[in-house]
């Protein structure tokens, strides 16, 4: 599904990613764990196509296509989804308008018919209910006045509506209490399927109790230092990142 090879990326001339290799097959859930500053968020932004990152080496193939050549909206249409660590507030744009524009933009790029207002409303109501969200949250401007938990639920709602093939969850657990975390994790787990893959990016093991990964990778200093099964997460929880030369005590 996605094949990352020797990916190097710099920001303002500083190298952040120093050769990432990662292959994710359909249906797999991978977790990337790493300390602050290890390059986790850079990786997610580079994959989603945000400006400001220079790819100096390497390649990313997504369903056989060169992902790095695509515009962010083309990546979304191809099935890539980034659940933001800090969802962006957009005053003046209603959440429903945003969701409908997004869904229809993706359907259009894929050559599928756009949904009319009624069809869309039916779909979104169903998804909202499953995530324990209210209609009122749909009417509000995108993420404006949302609590941390509401923002993350809103990201999950977008994922449920857009039905991506590959979702990157960037620090989805940050800023969530345990109840909010459970709701979001349930929403994410409901989307797990043999055709859909996920990359869960997190600092802490806690999230992985609820979204259980098939593979765990440790990212530090811009490189994957070690890969293993889900038990690797537990090991990190116990021992921290010290064995990778990271001093988090400061």
């Amino acid at each position: 599904m996605i094949e990352i090879k020797n990916l190097h990326a710099t920001v303002d001339g500083k190298e952040i990613l120093k050769g990432i290799d990662l292959t994710i097959n359909p249906g797999e859930v991978h977790a990337i764990m790493g300390p602050n500053g290890s390059g986790k968020s850079t990786l997610s932004y580079v994959l989603a196509g945000r400006d400001g990152y220079e790819i100096t080496e390497g390649s990313v193939s997504f369903f056989g296509k060169d992902l790095l050549e695509m515009e962010p909206e083309e990546r979304a249409a191809a099935g890539l989804f980034l659940a933001f660590q800090y969802p962006v507030e957009i005053p003046g744009v209603a959440n429903t308008t945003f969701l409908k524009s997004a869904l229809n933009a993706i359907r259009k790029q894929r050559g599928e018919p756009e949904l009319d207002a009624m069809q869309f409303l039916k779909l979104v109501r169903e998804k909202t209910k499953a995530l324990n969200m209210t209609d009122e949250m749909l009417k509000r401007a995108v993420n404006v006045g949302f609590s941390g938990g509401e923002k993350k639920r809103n990201e999950t709602l977008q994922m449920a509506v857009l039905q991506p093939k590959f979702a990157i969850l960037d620090e989805t657990d940050s800023g969530l209490d345990i109840d909010a975390l459970k709701i979001v994790a349930e929403g994410v787990n409901a989307l797990r399927s043999p055709e859909r893959s996920m990359l869960v990016i997190t600092h802490y093991q806690r999230l992985l109790d609820y979204i259980v990964p098939d593979h765990v990778h440790v990212l530090a200093f811009g490189k994957i230092q070690r890969s293993g099964g889900k038990e690797l997460a537990l090991e990190l929880e116990k021992n921290g990142y010290a064995e990778f030369g990271v001093n988090e005590a400061a």
Binding site: G49, E73, F84, V88
Partner: peptide, 8 residues
């Protein structure tokens, strides 16, 4: 970027 990342 947020809007474009959603396909718009």
């Amino acid at each position: 970027f947020y809007l474009r990342a959603r396909g718009i």
